[in-house]
């Protein structure tokens, strides 16, 4: 049992590292379609790690969480975004607000900060995978950073969803996940949010002929 637990832990750590790597990849990805693919991979890594946690600790409700993640974040949403990008025809190279090397450097600083932050918290936690808490927080912060550096609407929404991924991972690693009811609620919120935002994309484009959010400055109250 001890042996198998260590073995599982190795796999979880591997998946966590993958999650962080994908976060950095998302930061440096310029094309929207590539971003959507990376987002799907991030969801897959999350789903897999959740399933392994469920298997190794016997927390059966985590299986449902893993399935939910798989259906929503790996299949439904990426598919929805692919369609959206095709319909809106917005898959072009996007110059981010800050150039990519600088963004990566800021990202590294954030990761160090997140690990420092997580150290005292993970010592209090009693779960097997407490060491991954730092990675979860880093994922949240990196997704936030991505939202700041992108000026188009779709990457921002993907950044927002990636942040949700990080939070989900943090919850699993610190306390074996939230109660299933809460997870279901969050999942539903995210789904509805994505649909609403999808409608907004069309509206924004119709109004400004572009999805570039800098046009929304005009809405500022004078």
């Amino acid at each position: 049992m001890t042996l198998s637990l260590t073995y599982h832990l190795q796999v979880i750590n591997l998946l966590a590292a993958l999650l962080l790597l994908i976060s950095f990849a998302m930061l440096s990805q310029r094309r929207i379609v590539g971003l959507i693919t990376l987002f799907a991979w991030q969801g897959a890594a999350l789903s897999a790690s959740t399933a392994i946690v469920a298997w190794s600790t016997g927390q059966h409700h985590l299986y449902y969480s893993a399935a939910l993640t798989l259906v929503l974040k790996v299949i439904a949403m990426p598919w929805f975004f692919y369609r959206l990008v095709k319909k809106l025809d917005v898959d072009r190279d996007v110059e981010p607000m800050i150039n990519i090397p600088t963004t990566m450097l800021i990202g590294i600083v954030l990761v160090i900060f997140a690990f420092n932050l997580a150290m005292p918290i993970s010592q209090m936690s009693g779960t097997v995978m407490r060491s991954t808490l730092g990675i979860a927080m880093a994922t949240v912060l990196l997704a936030f950073l991505m939202m700041i550096t992108r000026s188009k609407a779709i990457p921002q929404v993907i950044g927002f969803l990636a942040m949700e991924n990080g939070l989900f991972f943090a919850a699993t690693s610190a306390t074996y996940g939230m109660p299933l009811v809460v997870e279901m609620g969050v999942a539903l919120d995210v789904l509805v949010g994505v649909f609403v935002l999808g409608i907004f994309f069309f509206q924004i484009r119709e109004t400004f002929d572009s999805l570039d959010l800098k046009h929304m400055e005009k809405l500022k109250e004078k």
Binding site: M97, L117, P120, I121, L145, T149, L213, M216, E217, K220
Partner: peptide
Amino acid sequence: LQHGRIQWYLIYSFATLIFLLVFVT
């Protein structure tokens, strides 16, 4: 402070988040 640019609003919340995290820990 009100620019009308979403990035700036995000930076405000990001800075607040970082500040609070530092403050709490």
